[in-house]
């Protein structure tokens, strides 16, 4: 039986649809990632799960309890980290931790033990007396995570925890998440970063409030249809515009080069004359295996 269940979730804000018929399940102990650009509807799904908004349609439940009607039963096992830093900037690291200790009823020796544990993985102990506002982005996120973990939740829900955090801190943050998974914590995390998806057990592509695809990170690129080439030339706007002018090709800047998608059923041979005519050397187009981002972009464009 699934630990988290979301069935046919729908939510509109003033007539604008944020999430439409959204369905997914998460098993206990799983790390589940919701991936998508800003405004895709990830936060709406997460905030519904955390009982902060009521959906218009559909149902959401955690551990068998309805997120709307029985949210009080969920609170004790839930740790939530919202998208914006939501601790008290004028309190120190310790004061923030102590505050959440009080809120969750973790006090006395139990609190001291818990704080030691939280300091161990967050490495925040040297900054114990520093005010939260003076922490770096990465440290802030680790402090927020520590507070959300104060009561040893069974499920952790994180809304874009690594947005605006430097790459090194992002990696450290994910290492902490994977360590928590080892301890049996179920994790639902949203992110705009494709590279983080690979670390999840399963991921779900979200775009315009719809679920585009869902699966294991290794399997998702298999959903890519057609063929993909890497154009080893300067990724200028002009080059990309010229490539896109050919109807059967979609070109997109990718790192230092250009990814060229050929639509289903079209081969490179068929577009070679046109490419040559435009002055491209066909040897510069090398077939590559699509990755998660290629897959997501294709799904987005087709939706």
């Amino acid at each position: 039986m699934s630990f988290v269940s979301v069935q046919g979730l729908g939510k509109s804000y003033r007539g604008v649809r944020a999430v439409n018929d959204f369905t997914f399940d998460v098993r206990q102990g799983e790390v589940y990632a919701l991936v998508g650009p800003d405004g895709a509807g990830k936060s709406t799904v997460i905030r519904t799960l955390c009982g902060l908004i009521d959906s218009d349609t559909g149902e959401a439940s955690i551990n068998g309890f309805d997120c709307r009607k029985q949210f009080n039963h969920i609170k004790p096992i839930l740790g939530y980290m919202p998208q914006v830093f939501s601790l008290y900037p004028d309190l120190t690291v310790t004061e923030n931790l102590a505050f959440y200790g009080g809120i969750y009823g973790v006090v006395g020796p139990e609190y001291l033990e818990r704080v030691e544990y939280l300091y161990r993985f967050s490495n925040l102990k040297p900054f114990a007396d520093r005010r939260a506002q003076a922490l770096s982005g990465g440290m802030k996120q680790k402090l927020a995570l520590s507070c959300a973990l104060m009561h040893q939740p069974k499920i952790l829900i994180l809304d874009e925890p690594t947005t605006g955090v430097d790459p090194l801190s992002r990696r450290q943050f994910w290492e902490i998440l994977l360590q928590l998974k080892e301890e049996g914590v179920t994790i639902i995390v949203s992110t705009p970063y494709m590279d983080e998806v690979a670390r999840a057990d399963r991921a779900c592509f979200v775009f315009r409030g719809e679920k585009l695809a869902e699966g294991k990170p290794a399997e998702l690129p298999g959903l890519f249809e057609g063929t993909l080439y890497y154009f080893d030339g300067p990724p200028t706007m002009e080059t990309i515009d010229r490539l896109n002018r050919l109807g059967d090709i979609r070109a997109r800047r990718f790192g230092g080069g250009v990814h060229v998608y050929l639509k289903r059923g079209i081969t490179l041979d068929e577009v070679t004359p046109a490419l040559s005519e435009m002055g491209f050397d066909i040897k510069d187009f090398n077939p590559i295996k699509p990755d998660l981002e290629d897959c997501f972009i294709q799904l987005m464009e087709e939706s």
Binding site: C50, G51, L52, N72, K75, P76, L78, Y80, P82, V84, F85, S86, L87, Y88, P89, Y100, I103, Y104, G105, C147, H151
Partner: peptide, 13 residues
């Protein structure tokens, strides 16, 4: 404003 109220609402308080 700072979102801390929302954070409190998901706690058992």
């Amino acid at each position: 404003e700072s979102g801390t109220l929302e954070q409190l609402l998901v706690t058992p308080i």
